[in-house]
Amino acid sequence: MTTTSQANPVRGGGHRAPAPPRAHRPSRRSRRVGRLTPYVLLLPGLLIIAGLLLYPMYQLLVMSTQKVGLRQIRGAEADSVGAENYERILTSEVFWSSLRNTIVFAAVAVTLTLLVGTLVGILLNKLGKRMSTAVVVSAMLAWATPQAAVAVLWRWLFDEQSGVANRAFDLLPDWLSELLFGRADWTGYTWFLESFPTYVVLTLCVVWASFPFIAVSVLAGLRSIPGELHEAARMDGAGAWRAFWRVTFPMLRPVFSVLVVLSIIWDFKVFTQLYILANGMGNKEVFNLSLYAYAEAFSSPPAMGMGSAIAVVLTVILLIITGVYVRQIVRQEEV
């Protein structure tokens, strides 16, 4: 996170000195060139984004208003169906349950990821050099593991017959297990049948793999906070809790803002892990929007128009959430 190193260490109290004046006044011509330079530099990136992102997105929008099957992909003219695809998904039960799954999952997973990540980040800041390296390296291993491998791993852990999770729950005293989960016998308990247990495992799987990134980012932020600030807070009699909310959190707010937005985006469009945990597309109850879009677009016979419409809805929701959030950040910063 490059942003953390930019954090102004004295915000909220001190006064920053103005930037030093430039050494010499530039000529008019070089000023014009200077004004154009950023745009010229942006051009290659923009071209790539336009080719790889904007055009496909435009296609997605067009396809979401058409009936597109294999025949159309093979060159036949696609018929426009207007808003029919949207009408059909909005009236389908699967869409609403997918939407619910997507949003609830994102809310829970983002909260947990940030919470665990921050706590581990703070822990890392407190640990000695050797210990903190050990923790960072082991946490990073989880982060670096490919999503597919992570999902397979968790599926095995929660396997109904030989999974370690069911064994472990079985070892709990019956009364405790009954009290906590409402069941004492865990032999053969199937985790991937209903949406709630499936999403419990999915949450574990996603949080486990994504908290290290948060932890390391928070650590980098913490390292940039001058020690005097905490010292001063301690002198004024603030405890650890108070010091976190009054000193650390405001200082790290920009870091958190970025992390929240990134996590929301990542958790909204989780696909790989769910696809593997749910073992394909047979159980519609566990669909989230990404899996729903995929199932419509790529099962046989393919309905790519429907799939596109769902993808558009997902993108719009994400744009709205992120847009509102980013605006808020910008406003806060401007005040």
Partner: peptide, 8 residues
């Protein structure tokens, strides 16, 4: 959007 839009 890329993730959601690869169908495009």
């Amino acid at each position: 959007a890329c993730g959601g839009g690869s169908e495009g």
